[in-house]
Design a binder for these strands. Structure first.
Length: 939
RNA sequence: GCGGGUGUGGCGAAAUUGGUAGACGCGCUAGACUUAGGAUCUAGUGCCGCGAGGCGUGGGGGUUCGAGUCCCUCCACCCGCACCA
């Protein structure tokens, strides 16, 4: 009987469902293991091509852990709030809930087609009120808490109010807005309720504040930096302006240190941790205040990580947007400064970033005074200084910083050496910390480690500065002017936000007539009728961002039906945290940072047991596609010309446009020889009837050579490979094994099916081990030979070790080798095959379930226990050693496994085959590495 | 400019602590079986050379008896970024 994947797969999937094979409950008699995938956004295009890779890997690991006796939580759900559904609603008027439901059903089908072992009874959807009830609840907790630096955790705002009533805020060490005024107890007690509530917003972990946003009037919405290209919206090309808007914000800065520190305790890819560290950007340094020459009371504050270089300061640089620029500009310099400011305002961030080599700036005409030596320091503005970071002002040290050096050289400013170890500062800056200070007043002759405290103390004694830690992470804007998101459970009274009562959760998204902003520019919720708290106070009109729902979802899986709590205490206590989390690295500084922030907060409240919710994280690489394009003449002519890419240089005067073609038409797709042959050209004409009469200038082989590029798989490039098609042809098991066989999961790679035949061949061969020449199922009950046991146990060892290291590609190789070896020996011993079936079941769950039952075993193979290897079958009688002379292998020889080093050393030199190499040479040394090799060193 | 990563046959890739580089698969070559095969099986396949042998893990240098692996240096490509003072 031939291997028929489709029959087998359908039958066993049904069996698993009927017998609830993958259902999991809290079980205190078993150790738990939690395998989590990043849940998908259900887009209209179907399951994203990058997803199966990660999902297959996590499924294999989940199945493996189950076989190893763990109680495995392996759930799946949908991150179902998002912009595409809203845009679709704007176009069609269809409620996003309806289109989302449809997409989810499609995803569910595709996921089931991949044979995953999810416990679907735990499915979550972030857009479901029973889910977002708890997203809103967590938001409320954030509003109700502030970050207390003495307790080093979040504390209830009520306790803060009590302290204000007693002592004011002078002794409160808490994370708050920079402009929080100092108040006394009397001040506080004299405030009205509204004033008190307003004041507390300076401390709450989520709070409304005026912040600049990219506002696009035409689209009536706020855009991310990414959606703005050259000052216009990416979609539609509408103008975008900077606008101040009241936005909810999350005080993630309060957790900056904990988020940094936590990275030391989790097993995440080092590169991803580094990205988060850079994003948080903790730098230790000092702030220094430079008084103006013209007005000693006005001071420019700078932040520097190298306060030790302060005697090398030869100019000061402000961001063009700095508050003091107007005041500093002298009448003579007015024109130049204005011109420069105008010029920088016209430059996009992209331009400012890419043109780093060009030195630009302008002199304000004013000076400030270096507090250490009283020197006059000229003040410039330059757009390499960013208004948004630190104080928007930099003290420039040309001898120690290359950018400052470039600027000084360009404007003819002095360059003062400050360390005796600095070299060649005439040609470039030298940022060294080595050596002793020179030209440096109070720190002359000191080293770096001595200088820093000396300077900081000096500054602090005089109130001119202090040691300071600066972060570059900013509070996270939490409002979206959109419909399809969680409503914020707050209302406005007298211009101050209040929370609704917890008993009123969930605050369900109201119906609206249109999904567009109102005429007044309010978000879509402004259209909802009666959208008022107790019919009098307007609810918050913005909704939450996409990352809200995904910042805690792993807890909901633990107890997804709970109405009383986000998850029961029991469930959270049992499942604790995610043991293995798999997803893409594109979430490095978005989801993976925000979710850690929320988790730290929930931990502070005692609601969850671990500070870090994901102990181990693996990034699966993106599977890319190949974009194949042909060249079409740019002309007004009705019938265009197309040219083979290898003939382009014969038409130097013609302009050609690149046009993507469907990859199905392309021969040798993805290679340098990729081309449309005669057949392909016909298919292309059929596909694009407008070009039926076009001219095709082919090369001498009659081909139109195409240009191949690796890039995103996307509908617009006609290069999407749908997993369903591959599965229809080869079966789920083959698809799963092939994706694993492609290479390491972390690696990005273009999708191609070139090697899939090897995997299907292997599965057929594996299947044939269980059948005789007539196609009848036939296994032998005989005791396996020593040789057969060796193959089995080598494979068990290899696969066990490789699964633990997530080297799934080499596991597949091991299965292939074992199958080939057993096939050669015509081994059909049930005792060997049964173990192999369990071993392979995580990778190819269906075929192995079938074979398990044919072997007469009870129950599901997925409830069996993973085989253990026995060292005794792995021992060799003899070991083949390579024998080298000066590192160059010249012969091999077998020695008994228990031979001593001395025996091997002696025997190796006496080998007949070695004599011709050793003739006339003097042996200086013989190196024997037991079990490995012999190297004879000759003179 | 900064940060991170990658570089091994025609292709996807293997290679515990430095120890026979290229496992496994694709492709290719030859053969077997077939009416036929894009099915199956067998053998071969890093490069140069008839051969002995030589050369080979992006380039150059170093440490070592021995380097894909460790160190220095240069190059190429990819990803991220908010010029982070």
């Amino acid at each position: 009987m031939d291997y028929q994947p489709r029959d087998i797969e359908q039958r066993w999937r049904k069996y698993w469902e009927e017998n609830e094979i993958y259902k999991v409950e809290v079980d205190h008699n078993k150790p738990k293991y939690y395998v989590l995938d990043m849940f998908p956004y259900p887009s209209g295009a179907g399951l994203h091509v990058g997803h199966p890779l990660g999902y297959i890997a996590s499924d294999i690991f989940a199945r493996y852990k189950r076989l190893k006796g763990f109680n495995v939580l392996h759930p799946m759900g949908y991150d179902s709030f998002g912009l595409p559904a809203e845009q679709y609603a704007i176009q069609t008027g269809i409620h996003p809930a309806i289109s989302t439901e449809k997409n989810i059903n499609r995803y569910r089908e595709q996921l089931e087609n991949l044979g995953f072992s999810f416990d679907w009874s735990r499915e979550v959807r972030t857009s479901d009120p029973s889910y977002y009830k708890w997203t809103q609840w967590i938001f409320m907790q954030l509003f109700k808490h502030y970050y207390d630096q003495d307790a080093d955790k979040a504390m209830p705002v009520e306790t803060l109010a009590e302290r204000f009533a007693k002592d004011g805020n002078a002794n409160v060490k808490a994370v708050c807005d920079d402009d929080t005024p100092a108040i006394s107890a009397a001040d506080w007690n004299g405030m009205s309720e509204k004033e008190q509530n307003e004041f507390l917003l300076h401390y709450r972990l989520t709070f409304p504040e005026e912040s600049f946003v990219n506002w696009c009037p035409a689209l009536g919405t706020v855009l991310s930096n990414d959606e703005v290209k050259d000052g216009v919206s990416e979609r539609g090309g509408h103008p975008v302006e900077r606008k101040l808007m009241k936005q909810w914000s999350m005080r993630i800065t309060a957790y900056a240190d904990k988020l940094l520190e936590g990275l030391n305790h989790i097993d995440w890819p080092e590169s991803l941790k580094e990205q988060q560290r850079n994003w948080i950007g903790r730098s230790q340094g000092a702030s220094v205040r430079f008084a103006l020459e013209q007005d000693a009371d006005t001071k420019i504050e700078v932040f520097t990580t190298r306060v030790d270089t302060i005697y090398g300061v030869t100019f000061m640089c402000l961001a063009p947007e700095h508050d003091l620029v107007d005041q500093l500009t002298t009448p003579e310099q007015q024109e130049e400064i204005e011109k420069y400011i105008k010029w920088t305002a016209s430059r996009s961030e992209r331009e400012r970033m890419s043109e780093v080599k060009q030195v630009t700036g302008a002199f304000t005409g004013s000076y400030c005074i270096n507090p250490f030596n009283g020197e006059k320091v000229p003040i410039y503005i330059a757009d390499y200084v960013l208004a948004g970071y630190g104080t928007g002002a930099v003290m420039a040290v040309p001898s120690g910083d290359q950018r400052d050096w470039n600027f000084a050289t360009h404007f003819g400013l002095p360059i003062i050496p400050i360390l005796d170890a600095q070299k060649d500062i005439e040609t470039a800056a030298d940022p060294t910390k080595e050596g002793k200070y020179i030209n440096s007043g109070i720190i002359d002759g000191m080293t770096y480690d001595e200088a820093i405290p000396t300077l900081t103390n000096w500054l602090e004694e005089r109130g001119l500065g202090k040691g300071k830690i600066q972060y570059r992470i900013r509070n996270a804007v939490f409002s979206r002017q959109r419909y399809w998101g969680e409503p914020v459970p707050a209302y406005w009274k007298d211009g101050v936000p209040y929370l609704i009562d917890e008993s009123e959760l969930p605050l369900v998204l109201p119906a609206v007539d249109k999904y567009l902003p109102t005429e007044d520019g309010d978000p879509p919720l402004g259209r909802a009728e009666g959208w008022k708290y107790q019919d009098q106070y307007e609810y918050e009109l913005s909704t939450m961002p996409g990352w809200a729902g995904s910042s805690w979802y792993w807890y909901r899986y633990m107890d997804s039906q709970n109405d009383e709590r986000f998850a029961s205490k029991d469930a959270v206590q049992y499942w604790q945290a995610v043991d293995l989390y798999i997803g893409g690295s594109e979430h490095a500084v978005g989801h993976l940072l925000y979710s850690r922030f929320w988790n730290h907060f929930l931990y502070d409240l005692g609601l969850v047991p671990e500070k870090e919710y994901a102990k181990k994280l693996i990034n699966q690489g993106m599977i890319q596609g190949v974009i194949e394009s042909i060249f079409m003449e740019k002309s007004e002519a009705k019938d265009k010309r197309f040219v083979s890419a290898d003939l382009l240089d014969q038409y130097p005067d013609t302009e050609w446009a690149q046009m993507p073609v469907h990859v199905d038409f392309v021969s040798d797709y993805g290679s340098e020889q990729s081309h449309l042959d005669k057949d392909g050209i016909e298919k292309f004409k059929e596909w694009r009837p407008a070009f039926a009469n076009a001219t095709f200038i082919t090369n001498d082989k009659g081909q139109i050579v195409t240009k191949s590029e690796v890039g995103k798989m996307s509908k617009r490039y006609f290069n999407v490979v749908n997993p369903d098609d591959v599965i229809d042809r080869y079966g789920t098991d083959c698809f799963r094994m092939y994706e694993m066989f492609l290479g390491p999961i972390e690696q990005a790679k273009p999708w191609d099916t070139k090697g899939i035949d090897g995997v299907i061949k292997f599965l057929r061969r594996f299947w044939s081990l269980f059948f005789d020449g007539n196609g009848e199922f036939a296994v032998s009950q005989e005791t396996p030979s020593k040789e057969e046991m060796k193959i089995l146990h080598t494979t068990i060892k290899k696969v066990t070790e490789d699964i633990e290291r997530f080297n799934f590609n080499t596991c597949v190789s091991a299965f292939m080798i074992a199958t080939n070896d057993l096939k050669k020996m015509k081994c059909n011993k049930a005792a060997v095959l049964k173990e192999l079936v369990v071993l392979m079941a995580p990778f190819a769950p269906h075929i192995n379930e079938e074979l398990w039952h044919r072997l007469g075993e009870e129950g599901s193979v997925h409830k069996a226990s993973f085989p253990e290897y026995d060292e005794k079958y792995l021992k060799e009688d003899s070991i083949t050693y390579p024998i080298a002379i000066n590192g160059k292998t010249r012969a091999t020889a077998d020695f008994p496994a228990d031979a001593s080093k001395a025996d091997i050393e002696k025997a190796a030199q006496e080998l007949d085959t070695m004599q011709k190499w050793l003739e006339g040479k003097t042996i200086r040394k013989v190196i024997v590495v037991p079990g490995r090799m012999v190297n004879i060193v000759v003179g």
